[in-house]
């Protein structure tokens, strides 16, 4: 087994213009490793939505990708307000995004459901007032 490849990105809060750079970078890295393009797209979507969540809700945070030979594990961590009711946050269309975020075309309440849909393994931990930690794993040879 080769040593895992770790990528780490610091995402600034409320900076909509640069959102997408990290996910693009992760996708290109996977392509260079010869990962199939359908998996690359799924990972790109997860990373992008996680990035957007950090921008809109988390007040910024860190997005990490740890790639091994059979999977990529994404972690998004913030020290934002946290999620009071995770189950509710996971329902399609539910959103607590600000008016500003909505004006920018975000906050449709599809982010977390989308991440879950594209993940093979998914987990989210949150504590109000402390922050949120999101884990998502995509396997390369599943199916």
């Amino acid at each position: 087994m080769a040593a895992p490849v770790c990528l780490e990105y610091r995402i600034e809060g409320n900076d909509f213009m640069v959102a997408g750079a990290a996910s693009n970078n992760i996708k290109n890295t996977l392509k260079m490793l010869g990962i199939s393009s359908s998996v690359c797209t799924r990972v790109a979507i997860i990373a992008y939505e996680a990035e957007i969540n950090l921008v809109i809700h988390g007040g910024g945070g860190v997005l990490k990708a740890e790639i091994t030979e059979d999977r990529v594990k994404l972690t998004a961590e913030d020290e934002g307000p946290g999620i009071a009711d995770i189950e509710k946050a996971m329902t399609e269309g539910f959103s607590t995004a600000t008016e500003y975020a909505r004006e920018m075309g975000f906050g449709a309440g599809m982010g977390l459901p989308n991440i879950k849909k594209n993940s093979d393994e998914f987990n989210i931990e949150s504590e109000v007032g402390k922050g949120t930690r999101l884990y998502s794993t995509v396997f390369f040879n599943k199916q």
Partner: peptide, 20 residues
């Protein structure tokens, strides 16, 4: 047909080593 960019190696382990 897709014309994707060539990976660093056909073997993912090797590709990862090259990526490092």
């Amino acid at each position: 047909t897709a014309r994707p960019h060539l990976p660093l190696s056909d073997n993912i382990g090797e590709a990862m080593a090259k990526l490092q």
